[in-house]
């Protein structure tokens, strides 16, 4: 197969280099990361799809929006939009969390859009336009994560509800952010080669991965993030769309909404009147 040949061509020195310099490519590293990414992506996509299928198929036996709630589907879509984009309820709840969460999530979006350039050839205009913002979004992303971490550590109520996994999750994001930033601002990585590697993964035509420590850390943590996604609170991202207190129109009087596991009302027995 063709990639065997390319390994020979690319992995000229055949050893993994440790250090901030890009010293070369290693076939072992390339294989390892190629396989890791296939597995991570399968777990991520399959896992999230499975969760969505689960949520979709679990009944909402009654109409229980937190009111006031719009009456129409369109109105509900608008409320959901405000919730997803502007974090409306969080704004009502806590301004500090809101600021850090917005910083974190808005940056994440920009970063994701910017990273699309590694998967798309040619690079679409939107992605190209996001490039300068995406670069600095890395900094605000880390800032947001640090803010959230500080709250978790120093606000007693939030500290009380935090498990080790809640801290680790933020450390994971910080690790991803800082390793990514170091490649942009400290020690440039051969992004042309990274792009070739990514495109190669997608076309099953493997290309060598540049062996640089920040890149290995960065890609390793991102793969870890994809793997834990369907088993963790990261499910809040698809989950919010299924939240019954937010996604149902307020119409229990107008629309009959039977409980799926209770027999229909013409098959029930009534309690006898008192004294009979």
């Amino acid at each position: 197969m063709s990639h065997g040949l390319q390994w020979q061509a690319g992995g000229n020195d055949g050893r993994m280099s440790i250090g901030f310099e890009r010293v070369g490519e290693s076939p072992v590293l390339t294989t390892l990361f190629a396989l890791l990414y296939y597995v991570a992506f399968a777990i991520f996509a399959g896992g999230v799809a499975y969760r969505i299928w689960e949520y979709w198929n679990t009944p909402k036996p009654a109409n229980i929006p937190t009111t006031p709630q719009p009456i129409t589907r369109l109105g509900v879509a608008w409320r959901m939009f405000k919730e997803v984009v502007f974090f409306e309820s969080l704004w009502k709840g806590n301004k500090w969390i809101w600021i850090f969460a917005q910083l974190f999530h808005a940056s994440l979006w920009l970063i994701l859009i910017r990273h699309a350039r590694y998967f798309l050839d040619p690079v679409p205009t939107l992605v190209a336009l996001a490039q300068p913002f995406g670069k600095y979004a890395g900094l605000t992303f880390v800032l947001g994560a640090l803010g959230l971490l500080a709250r978790r550590m120093f606000v007693p109520r939030v500290r009380y509800i935090s498990s080790p996994s809640d801290y680790l999750m933020l450390l994971l994001f910080l690790g991803i952010g800082i390793s990514g930033l170091s490649m942009t601002f400290v020690n440039h990585t051969d992004i042309v080669a990274v792009k070739a590697f990514m495109l190669g993964l997608m076309t099953f035509n493997w290309q060598p991965l540049p062996a640089s420590l920040p890149l290995v850390v960065h890609l390793g943590l991102v793969a870890l993030w994809m793997i834990i996604f369907p088993f963790s609170k990261l499910l809040h991202a698809p989950g919010i769309f299924f939240s019954p207190t937010r996604n149902m129109p307020d119409n229990p009087r107008e629309k009959f909404h039977p409980v799926p596991w209770l027999p229909p009302v013409d098959q029930v027995e009534y309690d006898p009147p008192h004294g009979s």
Partner: peptide
């Protein structure tokens, strides 16, 4: 967890943000 989406979903997706704590 098979009958109530609220139960299953709410137990899964809380991010421990702390907005509700007070």
């Amino acid at each position: 967890r098979g009958k109530f989406r609220s139960f299953r979903l709410f137990l899964d997706i809380c991010v421990k943000c702390g907005s509700c704590t007070d």
